[in-house]
Lab assay of single mutants.
Amino acid sequence: DEVRLHVNGHTIEFRGIDEEIFKILEEAAKRGADEEELRRLAEKLLR
């Protein structure tokens, strides 16, 4: 299960996240989070 999030012209792939987590990451990206911040956030949410 892989999703792709487009951030500042880059595509970031995440594996094993559900739609709810994806929406949180998408919102963070809209607020200016970079790839590293998004990955840290995803790790926290998946715990």
Results as ranks from 00 to 15, higher is better:
Gly32Cys: 04
Glu27Ser: 10
Ile21Cys: 10
His6Cys: 11
Arg4Leu: 12
Arg47Glu: 14
Leu46Glu: 08
Lys44Thr: 12
Ala29Trp: 09
Glu36Asn: 12
His10Arg: 09
Arg4Gln: 10
Lys23Tyr: 08
His6Gly: 05
Glu27Val: 09
Glu37Pro: 01
Lys30Tyr: 10
Arg47Ala: 14
Glu13Cys: 07
Gly16Pro: 07
Leu25Pro: 00
Ile21Asp: 14
Gly16Cys: 10
Asn8Pro: 04
Ala28Asp: 01
Leu41Ile: 11
Leu38Pro: 00
Phe14Glu: 05
Arg4Met: 08
Leu45Glu: 06
Asn8Ser: 05
Ile12Asn: 02
Asp18Ser: 13
Glu36Trp: 12
Ala28Thr: 08
Asn8Arg: 03
Ala28Lys: 07
Glu26Arg: 06
Phe14Met: 09
Leu41Ala: 02
Val3His: 15
Glu20Cys: 07
Leu5His: 02
Thr11Gly: 02
Glu2Gly: 11
Ala42Asp: 00
Phe14Asn: 07
Gly32Tyr: 03
Ile21Thr: 14
Arg15Pro: 15
Ile12Glu: 06
Glu19Gln: 09
Leu25Asn: 00
Glu20Ser: 07
Gly16Glu: 11
Lys23Trp: 08
Ile12His: 01
Arg15Ala: 14
His10Phe: 03
Val7Asn: 02
Lys30Phe: 10
Asp34Glu: 14
Glu26Ser: 09
Glu35Asp: 05
Phe14Ile: 15
Asp18Glu: 07
Asp1Met: 15
Arg15Leu: 15
Thr11Cys: 06
Glu37Lys: 09
Glu35Met: 09
Asp1Asn: 13
Arg31Ala: 12
Ala42Asn: 03
Arg31Asp: 12
Glu19Tyr: 07
Leu41Glu: 03
Thr11His: 10
His10Ile: 14
Val7His: 03
Glu2Ala: 09
Arg39Thr: 07
Leu38Ala: 00
Phe22Trp: 05
Ile12Phe: 00
Glu37Trp: 11
Asp18Leu: 03
Glu26Asn: 06
Val3Cys: 12
Thr11Trp: 15
Ile21His: 11
Gly9Ser: 02
Lys30Gly: 11
Leu5Trp: 00
Glu26Lys: 11
Val7Lys: 01
Glu35Arg: 02
Arg47Met: 13
Arg4Cys: 07
Glu43Ala: 08
Glu2Val: 15
Ala28Ile: 09
Asp18Val: 05
Arg15Met: 15
Val7Asp: 01
Glu19Asn: 11
Lys23His: 09
Glu36Gly: 13
Leu41Gly: 00
Ile17Lys: 02
Gly32Met: 04
Glu13Val: 12
Val3Pro: 07
Lys44Tyr: 13
Leu38Ile: 14
His6Arg: 09
Leu25Glu: 00
Leu45His: 08
Ile12Ala: 01
Val3Ala: 08
Arg31Val: 09
Leu45Lys: 04
Glu20Tyr: 12
Arg15Trp: 15
Asn8Asp: 08
Arg39Ser: 05
Lys23Leu: 09
Asp34His: 10
Asp18Met: 03
His6Lys: 12
Glu37Ile: 08
Leu46Ser: 13
Leu38Ser: 00
Lys30Arg: 10
Ile24Cys: 06
Glu19Lys: 05
Glu20Asn: 10
Glu37Phe: 14
Glu26Pro: 00
Glu27Arg: 10
His6Thr: 15
Phe22Lys: 06
Gly16Ile: 01
Glu13His: 04
Glu43Ile: 06
Ala42Met: 05
Asp1Ala: 13
Glu37Tyr: 10
Gly16Met: 01
Glu2Asn: 12
Arg47Phe: 08
Ile24Gly: 03
Glu37Met: 13
Glu43Trp: 02
Asp34Ile: 08
Asp18Phe: 04
Ala28Val: 08
Val3Phe: 15
Glu2Cys: 14
His6Asn: 14
Arg40His: 10
Glu43Thr: 07
Glu2Gln: 05
Glu20Ile: 11
Gly16Leu: 01
Lys30Gln: 09
Ala33Ile: 08
Lys44Val: 12
Ala28Cys: 05
Glu27Thr: 10
His10Cys: 04
His10Val: 15
Val7Phe: 02
Lys23Thr: 09
Leu25Ile: 07
Glu19Phe: 07
Glu27Trp: 06
Leu5Pro: 02
Lys44Arg: 08
Glu20Arg: 09
Asp1Cys: 11
Leu45Ile: 07
Asp34Trp: 07
Glu35Thr: 07
Ile24Arg: 11
Arg47Pro: 11
Phe22His: 05
Arg39Pro: 00
Ile12Lys: 00
Glu26Phe: 11
Phe14Pro: 05
Asn8His: 03
Ile21Asn: 14
Thr11Arg: 01
Ala28Pro: 00
Glu36Met: 13
Lys44Glu: 14
Ala33Phe: 11
Ile21Lys: 08
Asp18Gln: 04
Ile17Asp: 05
Arg40Glu: 13
Asp34Ser: 12
Asp34Pro: 08
Arg15Lys: 15
Leu25Tyr: 01
Leu45Ala: 08
Lys30Val: 09
Arg47Asp: 14
Lys23Phe: 08
Ile24Met: 10
Glu19Trp: 06
Ile17Thr: 06
Ala33Cys: 08
Leu38Asp: 00
His10Gln: 14
Ile24Val: 12
Asp34Val: 09
Ala42Tyr: 09
Glu37Arg: 07
Gly32Leu: 04
Val3Lys: 15
Phe22Arg: 04
Glu2Arg: 09
Ala42Ile: 09
Ala33Val: 10
Leu5Thr: 02
Ala29Asp: 01
Leu46Arg: 08
Glu2Tyr: 11
Leu46Tyr: 03
Gly9Cys: 04
Leu45Cys: 14
Glu43Phe: 02
Arg47Ser: 13
Glu35Pro: 07
Ala33Asp: 06
Asp1Thr: 12
Thr11Lys: 04
Ile17Ser: 06
Glu43Gln: 06
Ala28Phe: 10
Glu27Lys: 10
Arg31Lys: 11
Leu38Lys: 00
Arg15Thr: 15
Phe14Val: 13
Lys30Trp: 09
Glu35Lys: 03
Glu37Thr: 13
Lys23Arg: 13
Lys44His: 14
Lys44Cys: 13
Asp1Arg: 15
Glu43Asn: 08
Glu20Trp: 11
Glu36Cys: 07
Gly32Arg: 01
Ala42Arg: 01
Ala29Thr: 05
Arg15Ile: 15
Gly32Asn: 04
Asp1Trp: 10
Asp18Asn: 12
Leu25Ala: 00
Glu36Ala: 13
Ala33Ser: 09
Asp1Tyr: 15
Ile12Val: 08
His6Pro: 04
Leu38Thr: 01
Arg39Glu: 03
Leu5Gly: 02
Leu5Val: 07
Leu25Gln: 00
Glu36Thr: 12
His6Trp: 00
Asn8Gly: 07
Gly9Arg: 00
Thr11Pro: 03
Asn8Thr: 02
Arg47Gln: 14
Val3Arg: 15
Ala29Ser: 07
Glu27Cys: 10
Glu19Val: 07
Leu46Gln: 14
Ala29Pro: 00
His10Asp: 07
Arg15Asn: 15
Lys23Ser: 10
Arg39Asn: 06
Arg40Pro: 00
Asp1Phe: 15
His10Trp: 00
Gly16Ala: 02
Leu41Tyr: 05
